[in-house]
Design a protein around this nucleic acid. Sequence first.
DNA 1: TAGGTGAGTAACTGCCGAAC
DNA 2: GTTCGGCAGTTACTCACCTA
Length: 204
Amino acid sequence: MTSIDHANLARLDLNLLVAFDALLTERSVTRAAARIGLGQSAMSHNLARLRTLFGDELLTRGADGMRPTPRALALADPVRVTLSQIQAAVLQREAFDPSTTDRVFKIGLADSIEVAVIPGLVARLRQVAPGVGLRLRSINRISILEELDAGTLDLGIGVFNQGQIHHKRRPLYTDSFICLFNPTQLNVSPPISLEDYLRVPHVL
DNA sequence: TAGGTGAGTAACTGCCGAAC
DNA sequence: GTTCGGCAGTTACTCACCTA
């Protein structure tokens, strides 16, 4: 296990990391201050302390608002993951019991995935979590990541080849596609190869 | 069209008081 | 004595408007 440097960590104010996360999220001192209930001046002081702490400008003024430095971008994910873990450890409520909860989960997913996943999920919920409600929204995968960060979605289901460290991912199921074609028109004969498939125009 | 000017907005900074 | 946050003034920047 990694040892804790208590002497140095004692000098680190956790609120500064909260301020850092708000600044990276809002890209504005004023909005970041409002986000965590401080005045603009206090957030400006926090930014100054963060700059001293990390020895980097972190955010610089630009024509389009506050621009994060490479150092700030490198710190963004580790800080957010750390804050999430602290939040889970410190603010965790009583253990989640699916059989008694009446929580409503907001799920973002594509229509095609809804057809494949939701009937089975609803049947399962009736058995083990009868009080759970689902609020489904048809949404593209890029917006899903944004809305997860904003807290307007609890879960996103889709094909994700991008995302941040704090986006937890689990394989849900595998799927395959059927390719329909007219051998006469395309001048190919089954079974088609990958080269044949890529050579001709097609729609998905 | 280019340059000057003023208003508005946002960030920075010095100073101060409160809390510990 | 130290730290934190707010107040007030300053600075930097954008944008709209006016004029040559």
